[in-house]
Write a protein that binds this DNA or RNA. Sequence first.
DNA 1: TAGCTGGTACGATGAGCATCGTAGCATATT
DNA 2: AATATGCTACGATGCTCATCGTACCAGCTA
Lengths: 121, 121
Amino acid sequence: MTLYHPATEEIELSAVLHALSDPQRLQIVRLLAAHDVPVPCGSLSLDVTKSTATHHFRVLREAGVVFQVPSGTSKLTTLRRADLDARLPGLLDAVLAASPVGAAPAFGRSVSEPATYAAAI
Amino acid sequence: MTLYHPATEEIELSAVLHALSDPQRLQIVRLLAAHDVPVPCGSLSLDVTKSTATHHFRVLREAGVVFQVPSGTSKLTTLRRADLDARLPGLLDAVLAASPVGAAPAFGRSVSEPATYAAAI
DNA sequence: TAGCTGGTACGATGAGCATCGTAGCATATT
DNA sequence: AATATGCTACGATGCTCATCGTACCAGCTA
């Protein structure tokens, strides 16, 4: 039994967006992006149990976001940066550039029209 | 009762990703991006019933992706391009640049290592 | 006033999913 | 061989969500 990985051309936008829309998985991707070397799944400190982590890694892998190789008792995981950039240019960069979850929000009033409407209507 | 719109600073990455991860909503965003003027909801030809369309428009609006103003019996909808670009730079462009659902996939073999692995392992 | 039109509200339904616990299975390590 | 480690498999559970039908409401129009 081999681990399924979609080929680069098979990576689908909605699958990637769905994979990244979960906060836990987004956190995994952020942590992976911080390392440039393959990382054992267990070395990422997550707030979920092992079985839930396995589930999230599978979702990310089957969407084409990460790549996994068995290595001894562990499994090395890397971000498929090049493939994602080739298939969905700019998407991963935009997601990683977004301020992380705990960041202090900007406090100025929005200048654009829609945000103004939100307060006015 | 006023329509809720998040302010620009309140737009959350995971909410936007979740809103865009549904094919119907992705299609709505693509259609809105094709027009630069406010569009009545009903003028977009969707494959769902009215109530489902209402649901999708609300998800997009509450995530901060679109902006809606009541206008007579109708409701005008626009893409919040400027706000999204300010809060999540590059994200919308990357999503819109991705090949639409029905497009013919590239046929060359992938060069990158992970895709090669997908075929080899 | 009466009717039409575009959209919403509400409930129902069926599917998917995030999460967990327990059990199991490989691969080191002793 | 015995144990430890890192992960997976397999339910089970409770929640979310995409979809629909029906009823309803607010504006236009005749």
